[in-house]
Computed example of a mutant assay.
Amino acid sequence: MPRSRDYPTRPFLGVSAVVQSDAGILLIERGKPPLMGSWSLPGGLVETGEQLEQAIIREMREETGIQFTPHHIADLVEIIRTDKDGKTERHYVIAVFYGTSDVVDLIAGDDASTAEWVPIENLADYPLTEGTLDVVKKILNTVERSFP
């Protein structure tokens, strides 16, 4: 039986964040389908009546255990996946925030099985969800951070 996000009648609105610290970039390992076992930026869907900034603060707390104050929306990402017949199987519009953190200890929760600070130079060694590395590079270059 298809999940409610499969073959949507409208796009889903989500939030995500590129969070940078001295230890690297914050990533979570997805603990549930779809893409279970893949690594991505923390985030999730916006709830009805919830502002985007409130949503990313909630999602960060739920998935990583940290209190997060986003600096700004750094990118808008659209994910559209079609099936073999060309029908839209998934459609998300994601507001990607940028922020920094000095929190060291992470507590994975909600949809995340693991949360880690990953050194920038090691990001490509992780099985990242499609487009994650490109988004991180784009945002870090935009905020004038060097990316190897």
Rank of each mutant, 00 (worst) to 15 (best):
M1T: 07
M1W: 08
P2W: 05
R3V: 06
R3A: 08
R5E: 15
D6L: 09
Y7S: 07
P8A: 07
P8S: 10
T9Q: 08
R10S: 15
P11W: 11
F12H: 07
F12I: 09
L13P: 00
L13C: 13
G14R: 09
S16M: 05
S16N: 11
A17L: 02
V19R: 02
Q20M: 11
Q20V: 14
S21E: 08
S21Q: 02
D22N: 15
A23T: 13
A23W: 14
G24P: 02
L26D: 00
L27H: 04
I28A: 04
I28V: 14
I28G: 00
E29P: 09
E29C: 13
R30D: 04
R30I: 09
P34E: 12
P34K: 02
M36P: 06
S38T: 11
S38A: 14
S38E: 12
W39C: 05
L41C: 05
P42N: 07
P42L: 02
G43A: 06
G44L: 05
V46P: 03
T48P: 12
T48H: 11
G49L: 11
E50T: 08
Q51S: 12
Q51E: 12
Q51F: 13
L52N: 09
A55K: 01
I57E: 02
I57M: 04
M60T: 01
M60D: 03
R61Q: 06
E62T: 10
T64P: 00
Q67P: 08
F68S: 01
P70L: 01
P70N: 07
H71R: 15
H72C: 13
H72Q: 10
A74K: 01
D75V: 04
D75H: 09
D75I: 03
L76R: 10
L76P: 05
E78I: 06
E78L: 06
R81M: 05
R81Y: 06
T82E: 15
T82L: 09
T82K: 14
K84Q: 13
K84H: 14
D85L: 10
D85C: 06
D85A: 15
G86R: 01
T88R: 13
T88L: 08
R90C: 04
R90A: 10
R90K: 14
H91C: 04
H91W: 10
Y92P: 07
A95H: 10
V96I: 12
G99P: 03
S101R: 02
S101C: 08
D102N: 15
V104Y: 10
V104S: 09
V104E: 15
D105C: 01
A108Y: 06
D110V: 05
A112E: 05
T114Q: 15
T114C: 15
T114P: 12
E116K: 14
E116P: 09
I120T: 14
E121P: 08
E121L: 15
N122G: 02
A124Y: 12
D125W: 07
Y126Q: 04
Y126V: 06
Y126K: 08
P127R: 09
T129C: 13
T129N: 02
E130V: 13
G131Y: 07
G131R: 06
T132C: 13
V135H: 02
V135G: 00
V135S: 11
V136D: 00
K137T: 02
K137D: 07
K138D: 14
L140V: 01
N141V: 08
N141Y: 03
T142Q: 10
V143F: 01
V143S: 03
V143C: 10
E144C: 06
E144V: 04
R145W: 06
S146C: 13
F147W: 01
